[in-house]
């Protein structure tokens, strides 16, 4: 059996203020899609940053393909990352943001234009928005630019921190479809963070509930509903149902 593509082994990360996560154990196989859910401050973003190597663990280990994760720009290009809030560079246009690394890597204009065209189609981003600066984009448009930037180099792993948070319901539903298809067809390994249980279950079979920096439960939506490992999990699941969401997506 091949080693899991992404792996946290008893990883601990403490910020200066004593807050943080861990010890965390998590394995994500190649081609698998995992949704991180849980309360605010539960450690979702921190976990993604550990997986990507933006943070080094204080204890334990982070592995990529069985080997310790290296702090290396080339390794990071195997990941597509959408930071919470989008993180678009305000001094670059939408196109400039999306194609920044490709340009640094020396892609020619035609290739970049082609890829932009392709991704704008995929994310349903208006073509005339490509020349605009982030400040001139709507919140939803900006998020789609963040996605385009993450997808630009066609990375094998996608780490998405609330990538669809600011989209209107219709675009969001459409983009959920597109993402799900992309994940499956292209065989991407995906770890995404969402506050929407329905979206989590739609995009990923496997849901990981994080709270207080620890994994409370790791399973399918059905397992979370039928066999909650913790009273908090059932409260968390019920809170979504109380909103009348069709939680049985997967």
């Amino acid at each position: 059996m091949p080693p899991p593509l992404l792996e946290l082994a008893a990883a601990v990360k403490r910020y200066g203020n004593g807050e943080g996560v861990g010890p965390l154990d998590l394995e994500v196989a190649a081609g698998e899609a995992v949704a991180l859910i849980g309360p605010s401050g539960g450690g979702k973003s921190t976990l993604l940053r550990l997986l990507l190597g933006l943070l080094a663990p204080d204890a334990g280990e982070v592995r990529l393909g069985g080997a310790p994760l290296a702090d290396d720009p080339a390794v990071r290009r195997r990941f597509g990352y959408v930071v919470q809030g989008g993180g678009l560079f305000p001094h670059l246009t939408a196109a400039g943001n999306a194609a920044l690394v490709a340009r640094h890597l020396g892609w020619d204009r035609g290739r970049i234009a082609g890829r932009l065209e392709e991704l704008a189609g995929l994310t349903r981003f208006p073509r005339d928005g490509l020349a605009r600066f982030p400040a001139e984009l709507s919140g939803g448009q900006a998020q789609r630019v963040s996605l385009m930037r993450a997808l630009f180099l066609d990375p094998e792993v996608l780490l998405l921190d609330e990538p669809l948070g600011a989209l209107d319901p219709i675009t969001r539903a459409e983009l959920q479809d597109d993402l799900r298809r992309a994940f499956r067809e292209l065989g991407k390994t995906v770890v995404l963070v969402t506050h929407d249980l329905a979206e989590a279950a739609y995009l990923a079979r496997r849901l990981v509930v994080l709270r207080g920096g620890r994994v409370l439960q790791d399973g399918t939506l059905r397992e979370l509903v039928e066999a909650p490992s913790d009273p908090f999990v059932s409260r968390f699941v019920r809170a979504h149902r109380a909103l009348g969401l069709p939680g049985e997506g997967a």
Partner: peptide, 25 residues
């Protein structure tokens, strides 16, 4: 921080990060 993180995350080496992102900002 989210911009600094993004610049690292997208895989720009330190020099390019400085030139293309940090100094312009």
């Amino acid at each position: 921080p989210e911009l600094a993180d993004s610049a690292r995350a997208i895989g720009l080496p330190p020099g390019a990060r400085l030139r293309l992102v940090e100094l312009p900002l």
